[in-house]
Design a protein around this nucleic acid. Structure first.
Lengths: 112, 112
DNA sequence: TCCTTATATAAACAATTTATTATATAAAGG
DNA sequence: CCTTTATATAATAAATTGTTTATATAAGGA
């Protein structure tokens, strides 16, 4: 699952999450994105490249501009992995409860 | 939002995601977690420390063992941020549609 | 065609991360 | 006690990341 790697890595950076949050409000060009962040344009371009490769944004051509917007599919992929985690967790919740019960019996200090 | 930083950074590593997926099936000790991954025990301990600090797992004491399990709250925090992103995106979907419509009119080649 | 605007790429470098080996700690069992 | 088992920490080397400055490309307008 290489793509998930790149997607989560992309989300790991606060600047990139801020860019995504901004893009959730609607399309924006590179310069528009660069302005609020105390950062040069090349740095933003690199972040956008990473987000693009991670499948989290898409870019189109409009003259010399390259407006970006969110790629809902990419966000969905992340969601899906987390959903898997949550579902598996829920599916094993009863067993987990057993473990917790046993733990409490074994070492009561663990659950103050 | 420092905590979210650490949480997403923690999720960015494939080994740590695998550990989380394993823990979704139920509690496991450090050695149990280390076994399937081609990696030394200290390396796994470090990953667990990172997951712990990110609030994604909790550890208890059982003799010399330190069994780990998922921290549902941590997973929920990540979910929440993605939910925010998705909601904002949805709230601006109509406007986005307008932009797409305008884009198509301006430069039909963008939507083959 | 020349200049400007918008963006991308390259080179260089500091800071961070990840893994390994070696060592420390701490509880259990004999 | 002494040894074994389970885990943590330290030192360190290797790899990755994020940033900057400088330069390249490409479209638009005078």
């Amino acid at each position: 699952m290489k793509n998930l790697d790149t997607a989560f890595s992309a989300l790991a950076d606060p600047t990139r999450r801020a860019i995504l949050a901004r893009l959730a409000l609607g399309e924006a060009t590179v310069m528009e994105l660069a302005k609020p962040f105390a950062m040069t344009q090349p740095a933003v371009s690199r972040h956008l490249k990473i987000l693009d490769q991670a499948g989290l944004i898409v870019r189109r051509v409009d003259g010399t501009k390259r407006p970006c917007r969110l790629a809902p599919d990419g966000v969905a992929a992340i969601d899906q992995w987390l959903g898997m985690l949550r579902d598996t967790m829920a599916r094993n919740y009863d067993r987990l409860d057993d473990v917790l019960a046993e733990m409490t019996a074994t070492n009561p200090k663990d659950t103050p």
